[in-house]
Amino acid sequence: MTNKPEARAQTIVLVEDEQAMADEVKGELESKGYLVRLASIAEAADAARVGDAAMMIMDRIVFGEDSLVMLEALRKEGVKVPVLVISALSSVDEKVKGLKAGGDDYLTKPFAMVELTARVEAMLRRLDDIRTTKLRVGDLEMDLIEKSVHRAGVKIELLPREFRLLEYFLRHPGRVITRAMLLQEVWQYHFSLETNVVDVHISNLRKKIDTKGMPSLIVNIRGAGFMLNANA
């Protein structure tokens, strides 16, 4: 679960008016090796414009002001910095609004810190491999055009949903992936579940892609979610 700090520390601009919350987010992200700068809405906008921020985490309402207005303005100016919107407003409507305004992801309070860091890491990685046609981890290979998966040269038959699930893992190797992220990204479900159905999907996928006697490619991360073992 501990990720080595990146060679060049990335700066994350944090817009949050609740001090305790800001401290925790800052502490958590700094422990993961990021530089975190607390900023007001205006300061954050400036940092984004000059390219000072690898990404931004914004509370939806900061001191009574809707930060989406600033985000929309930034996007109009063509500023592409990844933005994670944090909000007390949990309705799907608000999520849609947040994403429409240019947010890349939307997290509803209260959330666990692992959820936040997992999303931050996924977002900072996201830009890298959009154009790839083949994804590979160890001897597992996925062809995105042919929609086929091979492990050590042996073809593995996957259902469409299993394929998408595996694709998401392959796009984020070595990263913590939470159940909520999988629900949102693989199934497009924007609500929380009270059943362990995601775990069942994962274990079904494992049965298909794992080789007997070898440790599983997808490991459980206690209290957080799952991770694709990048060194397999």
């Binding site: 305790a20 007390a88 309070k109 209260p110 666990a112």
Partner: peptide, 17 residues
Amino acid sequence: AHDLRSPLAVVHAQLER
């Protein structure tokens, strides 16, 4: 519930740390 959110999240984070 609204007011409990942040403290809960903070306590959660502190315990995790």
